[in-house]
Structures are given as structure tokens and as C-alpha cells.
Design a protein around this nucleic acid. Structure first.
Lengths: 248, 248
DNA sequence: CCCCACGTTTGATCCACGTCAACCCTGTTC
DNA sequence: GAACAGGGTTGACGTGGATCAAACGTGGGG
């Protein structure tokens, strides 16, 4: 585990939040921002919040004030309706933003829950709007992030609307893999932070179906699974499976 | 292939658009903008584009430059992947914005197709960013619109992930009804602009299933359907059906 | 007016996934 | 180290919606 360079760097960081010396700035909001402007951003992103596994970052119905950048850790967001149904709408990892759903009505519309001990930077939204009126690149980057979220959601709609169980799981794993890779972790071997049930909720499947799909992938030599430890053995095979031709 | 697109561009005639005297400004971007600022917006939203049923407003892969406000008409957006599968990601009507997905990568990620003769206002995006740096309320309103799109997508994910066929159709019809109502049309009686197949694609169902659900609703006296003409007879009943308790 | 094309409806059958239930792991508590 | 809890796996069976197929409008064109 100390093989993990990114994690090791995190531990060396001071407590004071500062985008200017955050090693995530290539992934997070400050992308492409001038050093001078970065200092202004530092003032804005002044509070960090440490959270334990299971803690709620915010809840549906709560007033919206800030968006959050994940400095370390892993989250899920979910929506639930009166009759008890719920749906995991996303899993978020280091460098990603949480809370964008709250802008529309000044109220959070989903729950955000830490799936492991985590740390986030709170970014007061009205101040972010203020600063992005001054800093062109910040404004544009923020718009890109929101748009990317919309595109991502369309991908999930595609998945839920047209794919079968194994295709969904393959797509999910490849997506995770690619995001770990982008953060300097192994794309082939990683620990799932979520339960079979949570994966199922995200993919529109029951946990038994998720479990069976995992077993099947293992039988076919596409990956090995032990509990939440996954090692991808055949990326191409997974990709092929995901894009498998249907009998149209 | 660009026959449609080229044709549509030709129609990009110099019809003078003007938000300030557009009767949609309560629904569209200019919400809550001062008269003085509204004039600046007028300059920005200078080109209208007239489209016929079936025309593409933009295609996946095309470069992104503008977002579009629907002045009149009805659109669908869809994504498709290599293996032939496609998914309708949304239906858009008067006053709604199209093209937000393109911001993230400067390229449109879906197709936008007119489902009836329509007219849109093109809004060059870089200019919109410029103006929203000057006009707070425009900036904030734009952020709200993007956020609302994200919330809407979460609703669709919920629908696709947890609801059964009849619940999905009920949710879909109630949503349409409510949007027609917001535009001053009858919430109880309207014409569907899309085929059973397109509804099915949006709801993650086959057209036969959509058709059967319509028939069932009619048998139960919830609505009457003739072709694409729908009249809702029992809104409460539909709502009850949508939120029906599952055997948990 | 008839014909053709295309979207829609309806019926019969099939199958992927849900449901229910038993059992198994692994980690934790006393 | 026995007992327990919570997640995960596996099997047997049921079912909602897909698939296949046929017939039915409706509207446009000759």
C-alpha cells in the first residue's frame, strides 16, 4: 500500500487547504489557472472537512451553499423516493466535485455519503460564482465540469436503458479502472469501496445478479475477485463483452 | 450526409431575434434580467434558425459553438454507440436549452433532432460566458439551468433503474403534462410528438411494451389514446400507479 | 379509389433477471 | 475460540418484459 505514491504525498500535506500546492490541481477545479489567480482561489477554498466512512456530506433536502472537491476518499450519491426505492446516482473519487445538483433549487436533491474515510474541500458557491466572473479560465473550467456531469449521466442512461447485466458490470468496471489509472493507481487491480448492493443499485440490478456476473467473469478468466478486491485480467475481453453486438 | 445540416444552415437567415420582446423570457434564459441588460442579451442571441421535422440541429461529433434555446417546436436528443444501440436521452420543448452536453469537450456528444417544425435561437457559447461575467443574474440562472439538467437526469436514472414499465410510462406522461401546463397548454390533453419507439427508447422499453401499457391505462380508465393524441382522465390514478409500493 | 408504407396494436412464446432461501465466508466481540 | 453479524455466493423457481409474428389502422401517392 505504500506503493501508492499519490497517497503518500497526501500525508505530507499540511492542514491548511491550498489549491496552489495541492497535488490534485490537475484533476480538480484549478486546472489551467495562473499562479496569481490561484492565490485568490486559495482564499475561497479555505475549509477542509474530514469525514469517516458512513458520514453524510450532505442530505437530500438540506440547503445548498457549497460544492465540494474530494481531496481524498470515495463517495456515493443517491436519491430516494417516498415509497422506499432508492438509486445510487454515482460514485465519486479524488479530484471530483460533489453537490452540483443543489444549484438548481438551492437545496440538495440527493445524499452524499463517504464510502471510506475521506477529506473534502468546501467551496462556497456564491463565492465561486464571484471568482469565476473574474477568472475566465475558472469560469470555463467550471462549465466544463458541469457539462461533463451531464455527459456522464447520459452514459448511465444508455447503460440502464439498453445494456444487459453483464454488459453493465463490464462497463462499470472499465470506467472505475480508467479513473483509477487517471489518478496514478493501477488500472488492473483495485479495491471496490462499495457493496454488491450499491453496485446493483447504480446499475439497476439486484445484488444477486451482480454477484453472479462477477462469478461468471471469473469463470471466463476475465478477472479475479475476492470480496472487494478486483483484478482485471483481460481488459479487451471486458470491452468486447460490453460492446457486444445484439441480435438487432 | 450533411444534406439536413446544410439545409438547416441556409435557413439560418438574419431574422432578428430579440429576447426583450420574446414571450418566452419567463421560461428561457433571460429570467429575472434587468431591461438594460436584456438589450445586451439581444445582441448575443442574434440568429434564429428555422427547422423542419426530422432536421438535425446538431450531430454527435460535430464541433460545439453554440447552445440553442427552443423558441417553438419539439426536439429529441439521442446518443448512439457503434454496435447500433441508441438511447433517447431527452425530449425538449419550447423555452428549454439544447447543447449543454457539448461544453465539456467542445464537441457535441448527442444528436438533436426536430420532432416537428421548430425554431431555435442560437447562442454563441463563448459570448454567453462573456456576458454572464458581466451579468450576475444571467450567470446564476445559467448555472441553475445546467444543474436542473443534472437533476433531471438523476430522475431518469431513478426511473430506468427502479421502475417497472407502467410506472415509467405514467411518470413520463405526468412529466409531459406538467411541462405543457407550465407553457399554458392543457395538462390533460396533448399530442405526443414522438413515436412509440422513441418513447420506448427513452424509457428503456420496447415499443410493444409501451403500446401495451397505453392500452392497459385505457382499459383502466386512466386515459384515452388515439394514435398520438392523449387525454389524461385520472391524474391521481396515474400518480398513484407511479409511486406504487413494491413488495419490499 | 385503391394501394402501399409505416406506425401501432395484439397475441403467443421465451428468457434474463428478480425473488426466495439456504449457506458460506471473514471479521469482531466477549 | 465460540458466537454472532453482515456481506457475499449459489441454487431453484417465478415473472415481467423482450422477441417473434400477424393483423390492423391511417395517411400519402398514383
Amino acid at each position: 500500500m505504500p506503493t501508492n505514491v499519490a497517497a503518500a504525498r497526501l500525508v505530507l500535506e499540511g492542514v491548511k487547504a491550498a489549491c496552489s500546492n495541492c497535488n490534485l490541481r490537475e484533476l480538480c477545479l484549478p486546472i489551467g489557472i495562473e499562479p496569481a489567480d490561484l492565490r485568490k482561489l486559495d482564499e475561497l477554498v479555505s475549509t477542509r472537512r474530514r469525514m469517516k466512512r458512513g458520514d453524510y456530506l450532505y442530505r437530500a433536502g438540506q440547503g445548498f451553499e457549497s460544492i465540494y472537491a474530494i481531496r481524498s476518499g470515495f463517495f456515493k450519491t443517491d436519491v430516494l423516493i417516498e415509497d422506499g426505492r432508492d438509486q445510487v446516482t454515482g460514485f465519486q473519487m479524488t479530484g471530483e466535485l460533489l453537490g452540483l445538483d443543489g444549484i438548481s433549487s438551492e437545496v440538495h436533491t440527493c445524499n452524499a455519503i463517504a464510502l471510506e474515510d475521506s477529506e473534502v474541500c468546501a467551496i462556497p458557491f456564491s463565492q465561486l460564482e464571484g471568482l469565476s466572473r473574474q477568472i475566465h479560465t475558472l469560469q470555463h473550467h467550471f462549465h466544463k465540469v458541469m457539462s461533463r456531469e451531464i455527459v456522464r449521466d447520459h452514459g448511465v442512461m444508455m447503460l440502464l436503458g439498453t445494456m444487459r447485466a453483464e454488459e453493465r458490470l463490464a462497463a462499470f468496471l472499465l470506467n472505475l479502472s480508467q479513473r483509477f489509472k487517471a489518478r496514478g493507481y493501477s488500472p488492473a487491480e483495485f479495491n471496490l469501496r462499495m457493496s454488491r448492493d450499491e453496485i446493483g443499485s447504480y446499475l439497476g440490478l439486484k445484488l444477486e445478479t451482480v454477484s453472479r456476473a462477477f462469478s461468471r467473469f471469473q469463470e471466463e478468466g476475465l478477472l479475479s475477485v475476492h470480496q472487494r478486491k478486483v483484478r482485471i485480467l483481460n481488459t479487451a475481453g471486458l470491452r468486447r463483452l460490453m460492446t457486444h453486438q445484439r441480435s438487432d
